[in-house]
C-alpha cells in the first residue's frame, strides 16, 4: 500500500479515467432505481395536485382543461380573501404567543447546569408524543362551559357563573394551538442558544458588559435564527391544522385550512381546493426560504 496517503483522491481519478458509456448508463440506472419510489410517491402526487389546480369542475366532473379560474376565484372572492388574511393573522398570533412563552423557557433550560439541561428539555418535548386528538379533547374539556377552567374560576370566586367565551372563540384557537405547538418553538431556540460559544458570553462580561447588556447585544442577536425558524415552523403548523380551529373555535374556526378541506368534503370542488393548496404551499415555501436566507446572511 504505497498510495495510503490519499486513496480517495487516487480512487476518484481512476474512476473518471475508466469511465465508459456503459458505466455512465449503469450509474444513471442506479439513480433511477433509488429515486423511483420517492418520485412516484411524492413527485407525481405533487404534480397531479398542481395540475388539478388549473382544472375546473363541471356537473360534478373534473374537466381537464387549463384555466386560471380557480386562482381568479381566490383573488376576486372577498369572502375567501378575508378568510385567508384572517387566517394568516391568526397563525401569526399563534406563532407570537408561542414565542413569548418559548423564549424564556428555552433560555431557562439553557442557563441550567448541564446535568439538568437535557432532562428538562426532554420534559418540554415530551408532550409532542401525546395524541393530538386527545390534547384537543382535553383542551375542550378545560375551556368548555362546564369545563375545568370555568369550574375553577367559579369555585375561587373570580366569576359568578360559567363564562362561555373561553371555548368557541378566537382566543381559544390561539390558546389551544399555542399549547400544542409550544415544543416546536422551544427546540430550535434552545438548539440555537446552545450553539453560542460560552467564551462569547465571557468575553462580553470581560469587556465590561452587565448581564443585561450581554443578553441584548450578544445572546439575543445570535439566537434570532432559531427564533425565526421556530416562528416559521409554528406558523406553518398552525396554517395547515384544519381540525383544531373547528373543534375549539366554533364559528370563528372557519380558517383557510378548513376552506381547503371542505372542498374535498362538503363542496366537492377538488380543483378549487388544489388551487388553495398551491397558495398555502407558496406561502410556506417563501417563509422557509426566507428563514434560510436570513440565517445564511448572519455570520455565525
Amino acid at each position: 500500500m504505497i498510495s495510503t496517503a490519499a486513496p480517495n483522491e487516487s480512487a476518484k481519478q481512476t474512476w473518471s479515467g475508466i469511465y465508459t458509456t456503459r458505466a455512465r448508463a449503469a450509474r444513471a440506472g442506479l439513480f433511477v432505481l433509488v429515486a423511483l419510489v420517492p418520485s412516484v410517491l411524492v413527485l407525481l402526487p405533487t404534480l397531479t395536485f398542481v395540475a388539478n389546480s388549473f382544472f375546473v369542475v363541471d356537473n360534478g366532473e373534473i374537466v381537464k382543461t387549463f384555466t386560471l379560474s380557480n386562482y381568479a376565484t381566490f383573488f376576486r372572492d372577498a369572502e375567501y380573501w378575508n378568510v385567508f388574511i384572517n387566517t394568516l393573522w391568526l397563525c401569526f398570533q399563534v406563532a407570537l404567543a408561542s414565542l413569548i412563552l418559548a423564549y424564556p423557557i428555552a433560555w431557562f433550560i439553557w442557563r441550567l447546569p448541564e446535568r439538568y439541561r437535557y432532562g428538562l428539555l426532554f420534559l418540554i418535548i415530551l408532550p409532542l408524543f401525546m395524541s393530538y386528538v386527545v390534547k384537543l379533547f382535553a383542551i375542550r374539556s378545560i375551556l368548555g362551559l362546564d369545563g375545568f377552567l370555568n369550574q375553577f374560576l367559579v369555585f375561587t370566586g373570580f366569576i359568578d357563573r360559567p363564562y362561555m367565551a373561553f371555548l368557541f372563540s378566537r382566543n381559544a384557537i390561539i390558546a389551544a394551538q399555542t399549547i400544542m405547538f409550544l415544543p416546536y418553538m422551544v427546540l430550535p431556540i434552545f438548539l440555537n442558544l446552545e450553539r453560542i460559544p460560552p467564551s462569547l458570553i465571557q468575553a462580553s462580561s470581560d469587556l465590561g458588559a452587565s448581564a443585561g447588556t450581554t443578553f441584548r447585544h450578544i445572546v439575543l442577536p445570535l439566537s434570532l435564527p432559531g427564533v425565526a425558524g421556530g416562528l416559521v415552523f409554528v406558523f406553518i403548523m398552525s396554517l395547515g391544522d384544519y381540525i383544531t380551529p373547528q373543534m375549539v373555535g366554533g364559528m370563528t374556526g372557519h380558517t383557510f385550512g378548513r376552506v381547503v378541506w371542505s372542498q374535498f368534503g362538503v363542496t366537492y370542488d377538488w380543483p378549487l381546493g388544489a388551487a388553495f393548496g398551491v397558495v398555502l404551499v407558496l406561502i410556506c415555501t417563501t417563509l422557509v426560504a426566507g428563514v434560510g436566507l436570513l440565517s445564511r446572511q448572519r455570520r455565525i
Binding site: 460559544p197 467564551s199 462569547l200 465571557q202 468575553a203 462580553s204 462580561s205 470581560d206 469587556l207 465590561g208 458588559a209 452587565s210 447585544h217 450578544i218 442577536p221 445570535l222 448572519r298 455570520r299 455565525i300
Partner: peptide, 19 residues
Amino acid sequence: PSSKRPCNTVFQDYALFPH
C-alpha cells in the same frame, strides 16, 4: 464579577462576536 475587573482577556478561540 469579570465585568468590573480592570483586566481583559484574549481568549484561546478569540471569542469574536460573529454578528
